[in-house]
C-alpha cells in the first residue's frame, strides 16, 4: 500500500518537472515571435565554392577583385591580403607577371634607408595590399566611421536562421558555410531600399539598409554599387567587365561577395580537396575496423553462461 503511494507521489513529481520544462520552452518561443518585420533576412545563394566539391570560379574572383580594387578598396582595408596571394593556387590565379605589374602601380612606404629616411618605392608581390589611409584615425576623420577590414569580412558576418536550421546546415547535403557571402550579397542587392512609411527619419551621414540589424537598419556606407551603375541600373562603363560577362548589379554583388569569401578563406580549395581524401580514408578505415571487431568478437555469444 505504502509503496504504491510512494510511486504515485514520484509520478506526480515527475509530471510536475515535465510541466515546468514545457513552461520554460513556451516562454522562449514567445520571445522569438517579437522580431522586426522590416528586416530582410539574406537568402541562401548558389556559390561555386559551396559543398564538398566546392572550388572558386577564377573568372568570378578576377571580376570580384576588379570591383574590390575600383570600389571597395577606396575606403576599406584588406590588411591580410598580400599581392602574391593573387597568383597563388586556389585564388583568382592571375599570372605572376600581372601581379608584379599590379603591385608596381602602387607606391609603398619603406625604410628607413641608410640615411635614416623613410621613402616610397613601387610595390612588390610580397607587399600587403596598401590602404588609402595612413591609419585608422585618418580613415575615421575622412569617412565619418572606420570601414571594417575586408580580409576577414566574409567570415565576420553571418546569417542566423535559428532552430532547427542551425543544426541542419551542419549536415552533409545541407551543409552551408556560405552565410558570409550570402549576407554581403543581400546587403548590396536587397538592403538599399526606401525606409518603410512611418519609420524614423534616417539622420544625416547614415543610410537605410534593411539587411543591417541592431542599429535600426542604419549604415554609414552609401550604396557602393552606385559608383558603377547609373540610376536606371545600366553600367556606367560597359567595358568594366572584360571577359564578356553581362554586368548587372546582381552579378557585381555576387562577384565581389565571392572575392571576399576567397580573401577570408584562401585555403578553401586545398581544405576541401584534402578533406575529401581524408574522409575517404577514414570511412574505409572505419569499415575495415568494423569487420575486424566483428571477427574478433565472433563466436562469443555461443558460450554457455557462467551461472
Amino acid at each position: 500500500m505504502l509503496k504504491t503511494k510512494k510511486v504515485a507521489f514520484m509520478r506526480k513529481f515527475s509530471s510536475l518537472a515535465a510541466a515546468s520544462l514545457l513552461t520554460g520552452l513556451l516562454a522562449v518561443s514567445a520571445v522569438h515571435a517579437a522580431e522586426s518585420a522590416d528586416t530582410v533576412i539574406p537568402e541562401h545563394q548558389q556559390w561555386s565554392f559551396a559543398g564538398v566539391y566546392g572550388h572558386y570560379d577564377k573568372g568570378q574572383l578576377q571580376r570580384g577583385f576588379k570591383v574590390f580594387k575600383e570600389v571597395c578598396s577606396q575606403c576599406h582595408q584588406a590588411s591580410q591580403l598580400v599581392f602574391r596571394n593573387l597568383d597563388e593556387e586556389g585564388g583568382p590565379e592571375f599570372s605572376k607577371a600581372q601581379v608584379a605589374a599590379l603591385a608596381a602601380t602602387f607606391q609603398v612606404q619603406d625604410g628607413p634607408n641608410d640615411a635614416g629616411d623613410m621613402f616610397k618605392r613601387p610595390g612588390r608581390p610580397s607587399d600587403n595590399y596598401p590602404w588609402n589611409f595612413a591609419n585608422e584615425n585618418a580613415a575615421k576623420a575622412a569617412l565619418g566611421a572606420l570601414p571594417p577590414d575586408m580580409s576577414e569580412l566574409a567570415k565576420a558576418r553571418t546569417v542566423e536562421y535559428g532552430f532547427p536550421w542551425f543544426l541542419i546546415e551542419a549536415l552533409p547535403f545541407f551543409v552551408n558555410e556560405e552565410q558570409g557571402p550570402d549576407y554581403i550579397y543581400a546587403l548590396l542587392t536587397k538592403g538599399y531600399v526606401d525606409p518603410p512609411k512611418g519609420a524614423e527619419p534616417v539622420p544625416n551621414g547614415f543610410y537605410y539598409n534593411a539587411v543591417i540589424q541592431g542599429t535600426q537598419h542604419r549604415i554609414k556606407m552609401p550604396n557602393p554599387l552606385a559608383a558603377l551603375f547609373n540610376a536606371d541600373g545600366s553600367p556606367q562603363d560597359p567595358k568594366f567587365y572584360t571577359d564578356g560577362t553581362v554586368m548587372t548589379q546582381d552579378q557585381v554583388a555576387r562577384d565581389v561577395s565571392a572575392f571576399l569569401m576567397w580573401a577570408a578563406e584562401p585555403k578553401l580549395e586545398e581544405r576541401k580537396k584534402f578533406g575529401f581524401r581524408v574522409m575517404t580514408f577514414l570511412v574505409v578505415l572505419a569499415g575495415l575496423l568494423y569487420f575486424v571487431k566483428k571477427k574478433v568478437w565472433a563466436g562469443l555469444k555461443d558460450e554457455s553462461p557462467a551461472v
Binding site: 564538398v52 546546415e169 551542419a170 552533409p172 551543409v175 558555410e177 581544405r271 576541401k272 584534402f274 578533406g275 575529401f276 581524408v278 574522409m279 577514414l282
Partner: peptide, 8 residues
C-alpha cells in the same frame, strides 16, 4: 573530420 574540412 567532417567539421574540420567542410564546416570549420
Amino acid at each position: 573530420a567532417w567539421f574540420v574540412f567542410f564546416v570549420p
